[in-house]
């Protein structure tokens, strides 16, 4: 119950600071920090954000309010962050809104290069290639072979047109030189049901969505899209370098802390330091891993590079899909 009281005090503090009653700290915003999250409370991007904001508020000695503005695959969260600039608004977001959404969504209303200041990468999550346990292929090589037997022989599910799962599958298909039939769903729950029910053959999915079914011998995982084995499913082989797939094959979802461009560099610097310190905490790492995310960290430049790299990789995949 102590925790509840602390929360209540924080809430009270927020009201007081909000009405201008608190003393100013030098070179640091006096208002509570707002962190916009483009997904509903309780979703995994939201839980990741809260794993950062709770210790952040302790470290800064200042309330940090999470604002959930879900919609349009996270784009609305970024839009709202930019709209709320004056409030010392920050955001955490998945990769989509910064890399692929500007291509896929009609007028997103922001330019990632001009309007967004990267702060730090929070965590990454690879996808696994999963099939029903009784399916014939046993590894990546035999999967590719089965797919080559006939064009569109393998039907795979994703969580929507242009989703990470869809683009990853197309990136893989391109690298392997195969063509698969894309069946869009809206959630991993539907994809899982459809694979187990034998309606579709495969799917690239979050390890945490596949793992319970694998443990119950209903599904198997043929490979993983990260460049290193992933701690949540250490036995699943890395796809890169197998059966003619290039060694630099990598497809990961990620989650990052961002700010609107034009935010005071001193503030960005401080936030990067604090976020990295929080990500160093083994307890935080453990919690993230349980949800299927690997804690990362690093400099703002690292994140900027990641955004640029992924934008071009996924841009090529989108070009390929649109050309079909």
């Amino acid at each position: 119950m102590k925790q509840f009281n602390r929360r209540a005090l924080l809430a009270l503090g927020a009201v007081m600071i909000g009405t201008g009653m608190a003393a100013a700290q030098d070179a640091w915003p006096t208002e509570p920090l707002r962190v916009y999250v483009g997904f509903p409370a309780g979703s995994s991007p939201d839980v990741l954000a809260r794993l950062i904001t709770e210790p952040l508020s302790r470290k800064l000695g200042q309330p940090v309010v999470v604002e959930n503005k879900p919609g349009a695959g996270g784009v609305i969260g970024v839009q709202q962050m930019l709209a709320g600039k004056t409030d010392y608004a920050f955001g955490t977001t998945i990769n989509g809104p910064l890399t692929t959404s500007p291509r896929l969504v009609e007028n997103v209303g922001y330019d990632v290069g001009k309007d967004i200041a990267p702060v730090a990468l929070i965590a990454t999550s690879p996808l696994v290639l999963a099939m029903a346990a009784e399916a014939a292929p046993t590894d990546i090589a035999s999967f590719i072979e089965a797919a080559r037997a006939e064009t569109g022989a393998i039907a795979y599910g994703s969580v929507g047109q242009g989703s990470g799962a869809h683009l990853t599958a197309e990136l893989f298909a391109d690298a392997a030189g195969i063509e698969m039939l894309h069946i869009p769903f809206t959630s991993y729950a539907e994809v899982t049901t459809s694979i187990i029910g034998g309606e579709i053959d495969a799917g690239f999915m979050a390890p945490s969505a596949a793992l319970p079914q694998v443990q119950a011998d209903k599904m198997k995982m043929l490979g993983i899209t990260s460049s290193e084995p992933f701690a949540q499913v250490p036995d699943v082989p890395v796809i890169a370098g197998q059966a003619g797939i290039p060694d630099d094959f990598r497809a990961e979802l990620w989650n990052a802390f961002i700010a609107p461009a034009g935010t005071d560099p001193a503030i960005l610097e401080r936030l990067n330091t604090e976020v990295n310190a929080i990500l160093d905490d083994p307890e935080v790492q453990k919690k993230m891993l349980a949800m299927g995310w690997q804690a990362q960290g690093g400099t703002a430049d690292d994140l900027a590079r990641r955004i640029a790299d992924d934008t071009s990789v996924w841009g090529n995949v989108i070009d390929r899909i649109e050309a079909q």
Partner: peptide
Amino acid sequence: LQMTMPVWPDFPG
């Protein structure tokens, strides 16, 4: 319900 929304207008300063 602890909904996050402003109670008062944002006065600058």
